[in-house]
Simulated scan of single mutants.
Amino acid sequence: MALNPPLTDWRGKTVWLIGASSGIGRATAGLLHGQGAQVVVSARQAAALDAFVAEHPGAQALPLDAADPAAVRAAADSLDRIDAVVYCAGYYRPQRATAYSLAEMQQHLQVNYVGALHMLDAVLPTLLRQGHGHISLVASVAGYSGLPQSLAYGPTKAALINLAETLYLDLHDSGIGVSLVCPGFVQTPLTAQNEFQMPALITPDQAAHEILRGWAKGQFEIHFPKRFTRWMKTLALLPYRAYFPAIRRMTGL
């Protein structure tokens, strides 16, 4: 059963992607552009955005820092219309409690979660006023449950998952769709930091196709690749007496 209005025709639709300078965000923006969407890309790296626009005529670049609420609001106010907004900005550094860094914890929080709140503050009045639109938050399977090396990253993604669930409940009757994207391992500059073998690793282009396929089906949660994410979902259902030993065996940590 579709939980959202299926998004199948992107022609003439304005889609704003925050965090689109590389990885999943850039690939998704490119795929949307190819399907006729008016794509607006934002990130801190202005040069990367300009390169995207040069390769995708008609796209628009709005450089900004998602952690700056005034910049996010100004960008939103500059758009004539918003049919969909995708928050895919992300920050990741491996961290364990034995090497705790408050500065890193706060940086993850600002980019991965607080930036999404800034986006919502900027776009919700417009979406509610027009009575239609779609909000998509890119989280991670790392938000399903606690994992080694994910002390800073995982909690921010768990917060996004909860935020998306609550947004869906609050906005469904207002005609606004909400979707949650939970990728496994995707080949991006963020995951390039990992020193372990990443199971079921996929490319950003593969991720983008999965996302658009999920939107077309009206799904709330879009998780991929299934051969990995279903396993992670199953682990998260285990009682802690079984979960903790299983994670230690799997990761060696």
Rank of each mutant, 00 (worst) to 15 (best):
S78C: 07
Q45T: 14
A61F: 12
T156Q: 03
P239S: 12
V40A: 07
I247T: 11
P148S: 08
A216E: 04
G184N: 09
R11N: 12
S78M: 09
T8H: 04
P189L: 00
Y100L: 15
W215H: 10
A76F: 00
A61L: 09
Q187C: 02
I222F: 05
V138E: 06
Q110S: 15
G146S: 13
T98K: 11
A116T: 10
G23I: 05
I24C: 07
A43E: 03
A246W: 13
K226M: 10
A216N: 07
L32I: 03
V111A: 06
T229D: 03
S150D: 12
L64N: 00
V39W: 05
R227N: 10
S21F: 14
A103M: 00
R230S: 07
C88L: 04
R93T: 12
G143M: 06
D170C: 04
A142N: 11
L127D: 04
I176Y: 00
Q38K: 14
I202G: 05
T126W: 00
T126R: 15
P125N: 08
A99K: 10
L124I: 01
L62Q: 11
I24R: 03
L238F: 04
I18R: 03
P6Q: 08
E221G: 01
T8D: 03
R241K: 08
L32C: 12
P94F: 06
K217R: 15
I176C: 02
W10D: 03
V178Q: 08
A208L: 10
A37T: 10
A47P: 04
A139G: 11
R73T: 13
L253V: 11
G214M: 09
Q45N: 13
R213Q: 12
K13L: 13
G58A: 12
I202T: 03
G184M: 04
L235T: 10
L49Q: 08
V111M: 05
G175F: 01
A97D: 02
L169D: 09
V114K: 05
Q206V: 11
E104R: 05
T188S: 09
R81A: 15
A200D: 15
A99Q: 14
Y113S: 02
I176F: 00
M198S: 11
H132I: 00
G25P: 02
A29G: 15
F220V: 01
H108T: 08
G154E: 07
L7K: 08
A122P: 15
D50P: 00
A47G: 04
N112M: 04
L201E: 07
A48K: 14
M198H: 07
R44F: 12
G214F: 06
W10I: 08
V41Y: 11
L31P: 15
Q106A: 10
K233F: 01
F196M: 15
S22I: 05
F224P: 05
N4I: 07
E195M: 03
V186T: 02
K157C: 13
A70E: 15
I247P: 09
E210C: 13
K13Q: 13
R227V: 13
M1F: 06
I247W: 00
L124S: 10
P5E: 12
C88G: 11
E104P: 00
A208T: 14
R213E: 12
Y113E: 02
G58T: 09
A97M: 11
A192R: 10
L160F: 01
L49G: 06
H209T: 14
T8L: 10
T229E: 01
H108Q: 08
Q130Y: 09
A74C: 05
A152Y: 05
A242T: 04
